[in-house]
Computed example of a mutant assay.
Amino acid sequence: MEELGLPARIQACLFDMDGVITKTAVVHAAAWKQAFDEFLERRYGAGFTPFDSEHDYNEYVDGKPRADGVRSFLESRDIRLPEGSPEDTGEQETVQGLGNRKNALLLEKIRTTGVEAYPSTLRYVRAARQRGIRTAVVSSSVNCRAILQSVQAEDLFDVRVDGLIAAERGLAGKPHPDTFLAAADELGVKASASAVFEDALAGMDAGRSGHFGYVVGLDRVGQADALRAHGADIVVPDLADLGDLADQGGRT
């Protein structure tokens, strides 16, 4: 398993999507910023403190289910909103309404800018599968399948556990390990024989608390120390830097 940069005991690889498979983390951050800034300006006027696309995004919302991200950021500003209903619009000041506004903005940004995959990640997934490693995608996004299809990557994963499936099964989202554990279980592999690939601090927490066999942190935004502090066994800027595949497949 040296060519993959993984311990010999690893039998399954569990990949987050946004920021690991696809270059959508920056689009998510922009959608969160617009949704929160609209809300904060309505609440406090022009002098509001805006949402920070780096610190606030990484600390409070990245990797979490949408409603959990809303609650987490609002709590950081000492704001409490009613939960609302899943049908609430962005004009309604509820947790669900804010989440729905963010999702509408995200889908619009994806329609206008498109979605790209990280070629190095797709090469890594294919190499893992060629070596008999089972693969799963684990994402809090309810748009996971459509995004994977848009980059022709759906067939690279034996199992998908996303926001829709988590809701159906009542699985707690990251930083809890439940969705990763469910993916490993569906693959028929123990957590201790599974590797987690994440770029979010919440994903690192999930990998650590779930006692997975190896946790790989992808440092896309210069937070290597934080990824290690939250449980990464190794941190790399790109999967082309993991193992010997960088020499075989080149860097993107």
Rank of each mutant, 00 (worst) to 15 (best):
Glu3Val: 15
Leu4Gly: 10
Leu4Cys: 09
Leu4Gln: 10
Gly5Cys: 10
Gly5Trp: 10
Leu6Val: 02
Leu6His: 04
Pro7Leu: 12
Pro7Phe: 12
Pro7Glu: 06
Ala8Pro: 06
Ala8Tyr: 06
Arg9Ala: 10
Ile10Glu: 01
Gln11Gly: 04
Gln11Arg: 12
Ala12Arg: 01
Cys13Arg: 00
Cys13Thr: 00
Cys13Phe: 00
Leu14Ser: 01
Phe15Arg: 01
Phe15Asp: 02
Phe15Leu: 07
Phe15Gln: 01
Met17Asn: 12
Met17Leu: 14
Asp18Phe: 12
Asp18Tyr: 13
Val20Gly: 05
Val20Cys: 08
Thr22Asp: 10
Thr22Glu: 13
Lys23Cys: 07
Lys23Ile: 00
Lys23Met: 09
Thr24Pro: 03
Thr24His: 05
Ala25Asn: 10
Val26Glu: 12
Val27Ala: 11
Val27Ile: 15
His28Met: 12
His28Lys: 05
His28Thr: 02
Ala29Trp: 04
Ala30Arg: 03
Ala31Asn: 02
Ala31Tyr: 01
Trp32Cys: 03
Trp32Asp: 04
Lys33Phe: 05
Lys33Cys: 08
Gln34Ala: 11
Ala35Arg: 02
Ala35Gln: 09
Phe36Ala: 07
Phe36Ile: 11
Asp37Ala: 02
Glu38Cys: 09
Glu38Asp: 15
Phe39Ser: 05
Phe39Arg: 04
Leu40Trp: 09
Leu40Tyr: 14
Glu41Phe: 05
Glu41Pro: 05
Arg42Tyr: 08
Arg42Thr: 05
Tyr44Phe: 15
Gly45Gln: 14
Ala46Lys: 05
Ala46Ser: 13
Gly47Cys: 00
Phe48Cys: 04
Thr49Ala: 11
Thr49Gly: 03
Thr49Gln: 14
Thr49Val: 11
Phe51Tyr: 15
Phe51Pro: 04
Asp52Glu: 06
Asp52Asn: 14
Asp52Gly: 06
Asp52Trp: 08
Ser53Thr: 15
Glu54Met: 11
Glu54Tyr: 06
His55Glu: 13
His55Gly: 02
His55Phe: 14
Asp56Arg: 01
Asp56Cys: 13
Asp56Pro: 11
Asp56Tyr: 14
Tyr57Asp: 00
Tyr57Ala: 06
Asn58Phe: 05
Asn58Leu: 13
Glu59Cys: 05
Glu59Tyr: 00
Val61Trp: 12
Val61Tyr: 10
Val61Ala: 11
Val61Gln: 07
Lys64Val: 10
Arg66Trp: 07
Ala67Met: 14
Asp68Gln: 13
Val70Ser: 08
Val70Pro: 06
Val70Met: 14
Arg71Trp: 06
Arg71Pro: 08
Phe73Ala: 13
Phe73Trp: 15
